Amino acid sequence: MEQPKLGRDPRPAIVIENVTKSFDIKHTHSLKETFIAMLRRKQLSTRFDALKNISFIVPEGQSVAMLGRNGSGKSTTLKLLSGVMPPDQGWIRTRGRVAGLLEVGAGFHPDLTGRANVYLNAAILGMSKVEVDARFESILEFSEIGDFIDTEVKFYSSGMYSRLGFSVAIHTELDILLVDEILSVGDAQFREKCHRKLHEMQRAGKTMFIVSHDAHQVQELCERGIVLEHGTMIFDGSIAEAIEFVKA
């Protein structure tokens, strides 16, 4: 499929080439069920193709929204881009440092404090202790966690998880930001602050890849939209056209 011509630097930040990812869905949930199913010669699992031969290129500095219904393969794509899981077929390349906000609390250790998790998450994203020391107060201030920073995160609400995870990611020296619906968590004031920060990163030339069901949000932040349906890419073009395509 022809890539949209949006006037960006031609160097690719993300390349996905002929990528397929499949999962086995088990039909039994215990040894007893498995044994009975085997005796009755029933199928124990079904192969599910989450992504089917997906290919696209994202130039540096472009903001892309991935759209589609639940189960279309959007979150699987982000997990592949972040390196959480490998593709079964095809290959993926990213240029520079990638920071991913894939789900609330991803990468947090529940028995560690918020402070310890900031250092842990930042290290996973490639930051040194010296870098985190220099940015810690900014991370804490943006997150609005306050004194809870020294509380074990297993006691955090989903909103607190979200705020702290987002704050760590955006204070990283990143080149590519992956966001999966995380901005739907938290109060309206914090979401607006996140939007302003994403606009700031966009102006700074960062590459952003966003999954969201909020058409207004992605139309503000993104210039390009990719639409998936049952693991297949069915549209790739301007964000306005992509949103209309999903509505149709």
Rank of each mutant, 00 (worst) to 15 (best):
E144F: 06
S143C: 07
I92Y: 11
F23I: 03
W91I: 07
S138A: 03
K197P: 11
G231M: 09
E173C: 06
S167T: 03
I145A: 10
P10L: 01
E173G: 03
K79T: 07
I149N: 04
H27Y: 13
G165E: 14
I170R: 06
E192Y: 01
V104I: 09
F108E: 10
F136A: 13
V84I: 12
G90H: 08
A242F: 00
H171D: 06
R196M: 11
E144I: 09
Q189K: 06
R40T: 13
V132N: 00
T46V: 13
E17C: 07
Q202E: 05
E144A: 11
S157A: 02
S75T: 05
S157L: 03
H195S: 12
G100N: 06
E141C: 11
E220P: 04
F245H: 11
I182K: 02
G205Q: 13
H29Q: 08
S162A: 08
G90M: 06
A99P: 01
T207D: 01
A134P: 06
H171R: 03
S45K: 13
E2L: 02
G126I: 09
G105K: 07
S184P: 02
L78G: 02
N18A: 11
Y156S: 00
P110F: 13
S75L: 02
K193P: 08
V15Q: 07
T76L: 07
K129F: 11
A123Q: 00
K193R: 10
F190Q: 00
T76G: 11
L31T: 04
S157T: 02
L174W: 07
E60V: 15
R95K: 15
V218P: 04
D133L: 12
E131Q: 10
V211P: 06
N117H: 02
K79S: 07
L174Y: 04
K42P: 10
K197H: 11
T94D: 06
